[in-house]
């Protein structure tokens, strides 16, 4: 796409995009307000406002490099560990701005779990993979630990596969099992929200299907924000879809609406082109 056409598309983007009325009235667990992120002089995404609706599946789609993953990292303050990250705006969770210095990061990350692209259980036994974070968050009682591990593994449908080998190394599991283990490890901490950064992109189609079914099962109990490149995946699981695009090297929120609206009658021509697979 030439620079010229990019520009003409952007003219069509409303300057201060606001979600259509109706959507706004749903309770949002995470409320992103005028948030922008940059490193040194490079802007990752422009100020954007986006509610993440409670107990629904919110998908974030868009081409790679438009700042989707960075947005997720900002919500749980993983950006703290990147030098020179400059963040403006606010992210409200339970009426508190998580970007405040006073935020208790340990409990923030217990409330909002993050699942990464590449499943990465720690190189220790399956049991220890659960015990380490659980003990960190104050669960010391042995029976309670056992109960929580079993419940979490049952929630992700992994219990029958691993119950007899909890003492074995978690790295011996298959990719799909490892990803379910990572999700279970988060669920054991009883979070309110899950951020998933392309959770299926490193998995084969069968494992992807299992994870997608799991995500649908978790709906209603957890607020889910899933980043995906896979449009059909977003179509299959999402209730709400936010579409990000980039121009001049940085990301921008273009449109946010019900999944049906985004995929069938989006209001922005870039969205139309993207969901029809006409761009990129």
């Amino acid at each position: 796409m030439s620079a010229n056409t990019t520009h003409s598309h952007l003219k069509a983007v409303p300057e201060n995009y606001k979600a259509p009325p109706g959507i706004d009235k749903l309770p949002a667990y995470i409320n992103i307000e005028k948030l922008s992120l940059s490193y040194d002089t490079q802007t990752i995404f422009e100020p954007l406002s986006l509610p993440i609706y409670q107990n629904h599946i919110n998908a974030l789609i868009g081409p790679s490099g438009c700042g989707k993953s960075s947005l997720l990292n900002t919500i749980v303050r993983l950006t703290d560990y990147q030098n020179n990250a400059k963040i403006k705006g606010q992210i409200h969770v339970n009426n508190k701005n998580v970007l405040d210095d006073s935020t208790d990061l340990i409990s923030l990350r217990q409330n909002i779990g993050m699942i990464f692209q590449k499943p990465m259980p720690f190189p220790m036994s399956i049991r220890k993979n659960f015990e380490l974070p659980l003990k960190e968050h104050g669960v010391k009682n042995k029976d309670e630990l056992e109960y929580k591990i079993e419940t979490a593994l049952k929630d992700v449908g992994l219990w029958d596969e691993v119950s007899t080998r909890l003492h074995q190394s978690a790295t011996q599991l298959s990719g799909g099992q490892q990803q379910r283990l990572c999700i279970a490890r988060i669920l054991a901490l009883e979070p309110k929200a899950l951020l998933m950064d392309e959770p299926c992109s490193a998995l084969d189609p069968i494992a992807t299907k299992v994870i997608e079914e799991l995500i649908l099962n978790l709906k209603g109990k957890y607020t889910i924000l899933i980043v995906t490149h896979n449009l059909s995946q977003a179509k299959r699981v999402a209730d709400y879809v936010a579409f990000m695009w980039y121009h001049q090297g940085h990301g921008k929120l273009i449109e946010h609406n019900y999944a049906d609206v985004i995929f069938n009658s989006p209001s922005n021509p870039i969205t139309t082109a993207y969901v029809q697979g006409l761009t990129e």
Partner: peptide
């Protein structure tokens, strides 16, 4: 030490002390 392990550990809300003792040192 595998950066992704550290990233996972941070996202699980583990303190730096726990991360150093249980994730970094064993590796």
């Amino acid at each position: 030490v595998n950066k992704l392990h550290i990233q996972n550990a941070i996202a699980l809300g583990l303190s730096r002390f726990t991360i150093i003792c249980h994730i970094i040192f064993p590796q």
